[in-house]
Design a protein around this nucleic acid. Structure first.
Lengths: 213, 213
DNA sequence: CCTTTTCTTTGGTGATCGACAAACAAATCG
DNA sequence: CGATTTGTTTGTCGATCACCAAAGAAAAGG
């Protein structure tokens, strides 16, 4: 792999990090190319040469973002021994991430481009697709719990339960955005997990209140 | 109150509705003044004469939006006899609103401007303030439930319970945005209400012991 | 009628948007 | 070395941004 031609004078990964910081602070539409070029320390033409376009740069930012910011919740979901522990750990890890003191208090995947001009609908749909895959990942973890026997098939369907915890996770971003503290999010999560004990019926404690609705 | 001068040739309320439709579809930053002028059927100068600025127009749009789109959930919260029924009805009404076939599937208050350019931070904070007031309204309804005796002070604090249901409500917008159906949101809400029975203590059984919080 | 008041239309402000062409610079290859 | 390849710099493209001044139009007051 010969490296012909003039070598790049900047590190693409570092530049991506700087672009991430800006997109994170201002969202997709709120960030301009001249802002990006200045923050990345290069001319806008170099952005096009290296990353293609503003949209393509954002996609690469989100890819990197998913592997860093998104890693703890994803890892928690997969590593915990039971479905209940997995969901709980995923939510706590999310709360950790969206209240980190060194970053804006929300998840880019959810709030960086939920709406926007017509010409940016592709970016919005790009993020929506990732969010939908999060839901299916959570759902699969619950199904695994049913297979493992640590989650009794709930009165509500597994689909509903998965969507419910996805909803809570996404709501955490809005809460953090509005100034909720890590401790307050912990209280939210504890409430959310109380539904598990009412619905999912853990195998260790036999069903108690099954009435309602 | 004499009406001197040339009368207005358009109805401000109708124009506000048309502006609402556009802001709703594209968010705050994604909507341009020329788009608005065209949709409202007037020149941009008339927008400034009547509404002041883009930001001021958006504030008036949100005021009207809160009195129309926001009315059903707010009314449900206040009208239901018990705290539990109030929260349940509020969430179902929210699900109704964010899946209406005649409007974009999300709540503007939550997703119209969660991020954006630095010069639009005031708009973002304007919406955040309204969202925080929603939380306090929900909290007050729960406190009323405690006073009424239909909600036993939960193991988790009333604050946490209020923030939890606020989080779920906000998450519903993201879910609807990503294509969740009304029925799927119903399943989410049923799961969310299951937490009530685990935390808040049943409403029918008379208040048991008053544990300190 | 004329004056005053208010709104609308016209037209354009400077700034900034995303994107790129052309010229220049720095590396490898033969 | 010269030729080739690749990245950077410079400058700018047409479009669009939010906004507004100036002039024309339509009403009421005198």
């Amino acid at each position: 792999m010969a490296t012909r031609g003039r070598p790049r004078t900047f590190d693409p990964d570092t530049a991506l990090d700087q672009a991430t910081a800006l997109f994170w602070e201002r969202g997709y539409e709120g960030t301009s190319l001249s802002d990006l070029a200045q923050a990345m320390g290069i001319a806008s033409a170099s952005i096009y040469a290296c990353f293609g376009s503003k949209a393509e740069l954002f996609r690469q930012v989100m890819h990197r973002y998913g592997e860093t910011f998104g890693a703890p919740p994803r890892h928690a979901l997969g590593a915990a021994p039971t479905a209940r522990a997995a969901i709980d750990a995923m939510l706590r890890a999310t709360a950790d991430q969206v209240t980190r003191p060194d970053a804006p208090h929300y998840c880019m995947l959810i709030l960086a481009a939920p709406t926007g001009a017509v010409e940016n609908h592709e970016i919005r749909e790009f993020l929506a697709t990732i969010r939908r895959s999060q839901f299916t990942t959570i759902r699969e973890r619950l199904h695994r719990g049913v297979a493992d026997g640590d989650l009794v098939r709930p009165a509500q369907s597994v689909d509903s339960l998965a969507r419910y915890y996805t909803t809570v996770m996404q709501g955490l971003s809005v809460q953090a955005r509005d100034g909720a503290t890590r401790e307050e999010l912990d209280g939210v999560i504890t409430c959310a997990m109380a539904a598990w004990d009412a619905l999912g019926a853990p195998s260790d404690s036999s069903a108690q209140h099954r009435t309602t609705m």
